[in-house]
Write a protein that binds this DNA or RNA. Structure first.
Lengths: 121, 121
DNA sequence: CTCCAACCTGGAGTGCACTCCAGGTCAAGG
DNA sequence: CCTTGACCTGGAGTGCACTCCAGGTTGGAG
């Protein structure tokens, strides 16, 4: 157990195989294990990272910042404060994003109501 | 009144001047009025469209779809049903987007709590 | 063993939504 | 009039995040 073939890792993470390779190439996902023949073997730990990346990506964090976070984590325990700070700042931006989305959604619903009340319907 | 210089329209809409020109070029914003010398004059009606485009853009609608909506509106009253349908479908997608964002935000907050509870802080 | 689906690499290509540029024109204040 | 800051055009360039490709290798089923 705790060893997933590329296709399985893609399925579980929801990222395409190309994206997984891309994430490794740019140093987001560090040094994935390989078989003797050079094929990737993803661990549960890798999968955990991918779940986090999905969370951060879905909330709009740019890749450069995810990479910075991943680098901090690799640098060890003494970066915990900085990592926390980074996540907190991001959470604030997500809150702002949610407020904007809600505001524009309300606007959209108003527009829809306008159409629904139009005579001749 | 009801005639805004390009810079003023940019300021009021929150789009850059380049973006306003781009939106006109691709036929999203149709045929903006001009002075004798060829400089744009935006009307309140144009500004209204820009407010709508901002709403749709902020909620993730691709430009191609906005253009389709604008075209329908230009085509006249008989497209009202189709426009309504388009907006409704988009609203559903925004709802889905909000749910995902909320879910991932919760996930992010959990991660932050994990860091906050770490010993040595 | 043999097969073939899944995998590998480096690098080029894509799609979206702008954004910038060069080289000129317009128009309002002094 | 003259200046100068705002504006014009067509077209090239940018940034992001993938996505696709050619040409070759791997490894588990039969």
């Amino acid at each position: 157990m705790t060893g997933y073939a590329p296709a399985e890792a893609a399925r579980r993470s929801g990222f395409s195989l190309d994206t997984l390779r891309y994430y490794e190439k740019i140093g987001l996902l560090a040094d994935v294990e390989r078989t003797a023949g050079g094929q990737r073997v993803f661990t549960d730990d890798d999968l955990g990272w991918l779940v986090l990346f999905r969370c951060l990506r879905d909330t709009g964090m740019p890749i450069a910042q995810m990479r910075r976070y991943a680098q901090l984590a690799r640098d060890g325990e003494h970066t915990v404060d900085e990592r926390l700070e980074l996540l907190r700042r991001h959470a604030e931006q997500v809150e702002e994003q949610m407020r904007l989305l809600q505001r524009q959604y309300d606007h959209l619903r108003e527009k829809i109501r306008f159409y629904e009340r139009l005579p001749g319907r």
